[in-house]
Design a protein around this nucleic acid. Structure first.
Lengths: 166, 166
DNA sequence: TCACAATCATTAGTGTACTAATTATTAGCT
DNA sequence: AGCTAATAATTAGTACACTAATGATTGTGA
C-alpha cells in the first residue's frame, strides 16, 4: 500500500485561499516562471525555421538586431543591450565572425575593449531580416495589440528583476 | 566615407506606421521575443539563489513540481507536462537521481518506458519548497494580480505556438 | 507468426548561459 | 613614476535545450 501524499493529505500548506478559491502554490500550472520558460522556448522555436535560411540562431539574431541599430560597439556594450554576460557573448560573436557577418578587433582607444562591427555581408543581411517579424506574427496568429501589450508587461517584469539587483 | 545605413536612409522598409506612429520592426526594444527571453532569464535568475540551498537548478525545480503533483510517471509523460524533449530530460533526471531525489527504473508493463519516482528525500523536499513562491513574489515586488494576469497571457502565447505545430 | 513500423529512452553533437578564475590593459592615488 | 585597484574580454567548467541518430521494446498487418 502506498500513500498518495500530495493528493490525500487533508491539510496541505501549499493550498492558499485567494478570493475564496483554493490555489495550490506549488502547482506547475500556477507558476509564472514555468509559463515564462515555456513561452520563451516556444517562441524561439517559431523563429528557428525562419532564421535557419539566414544561418542564424535566435541569440545570434538578437545580436544582429543590436548591431543593425548601432555599430561598431564593444562586447560590454552589446552585453548591456542584450542583458548577456560577456562570457556568453564571446563565443557567440566568434561564430558570427566565422560566418562572415561581423569583425572583431581591439579598440584603438582602449586595448582592453573589443570593437564589434558589421561586414558588408552582415549589413546586407538586414534586408533579408525585414521579412522575419511579419512571418512570426503571422505564425503566432496574435494581434499586434496583444503582442505589444505582452511586450510592455514583460518590460515591467524585467524592471522588477533589475530593481532587486544590487 | 562610410554610409550610416540604418540611421541615414530616408526610406527604411523596417519603419511601419501604426496609429500614425512610426515603429521600427527591427528595433530590439520592439521585439516580443527579446522581452520574453530577457524576462525568462531574469526570473530564473531570481530563483537561482533561492533554489541553491536545495541543490536545484530551475529546470530541476520544475521537474520536482511535476513529480510532487503526480508520481511515478514516465520520461515521456514528464516531457509532455514540462514541454521538454526526452533528450533534455534524460541527463537532467540522472542528476536528480544522483542527488537522491528520485529513482529511475524501467516500467514493468512496458520495458521501453522509464518510471520516475520520488524518494522519501525527494518527497520531503516539498516542505522546503513551500517557502519558495512567496520569496519570489516578494523579491519581484509585483502583485499577485499582475503575476496571475501575466501567466494567463503567456498561456495564450503558448497556445498560439502549439496551434501552429503539426 | 513474423516482418515491419511505431514508440521510448539514450547518446552524440552544437549552441546558449551562467559563475569563477585568468589575462591584459587602463585609471587612480601617493 | 609606480603601485594598486578597477575594468574588458576570454577561458574553464557545469547545466540546459535542441536535432539527428541509435538501440531496445512493443504493436500491427499480411
Amino acid at each position: 500500500m502506498q500513500e498518495q501524499r500530495a493528493s490525500d493529505d487533508r491539510t496541505d500548506a501549499s493550498i492558499v485561499e485567494v478570493d475564496g478559491e483554493p490555489i495550490d502554490l506549488l502547482a506547475l500550472e500556477n507558476q509564472v516562471c514555468f509559463a515564462l520558460a515555456v513561452a520563451a522556448r516556444g517562441v524561439i522555436g517559431v523563429y528557428r525555421p525562419i532564421l535557419e535560411p539566414l544561418g542564424l540562431t535566435h541569440p545570434q539574431y538578437l545580436v544582429m538586431l543590436a548591431l543593425w541599430q548601432r555599430s561598431p560597439r564593444t562586447v560590454r556594450d552589446l552585453g548591456a543591450a542584450l542583458q548577456l554576460e560577456p562570457a556568453t557573448l564571446s563565443p557567440l560573436l566568434k561564430r558570427l565572425e566565422a560566418q562572415g557577418y561581423l569583425t572583431r578587433q581591439r579598440s584603438a582607444k582602449d586595448e582592453r575593449a573589443l570593437d564589434v562591427d558589421l561586414t558588408p555581408t552582415g549589413r546586407a543581411l538586414r534586408e533579408q531580416a525585414l521579412g522575419i517579424p511579419p512571418q512570426v506574427v503571422d505564425r503566432l496568429g496574435m494581434s499586434l495589440e496583444e503582442l505589444g501589450s505582452l511586450r510592455d508587461r514583460l518590460g515591467e517584469v524585467i524592471d522588477a528583476v533589475q530593481r532587486g539587483e544590487r
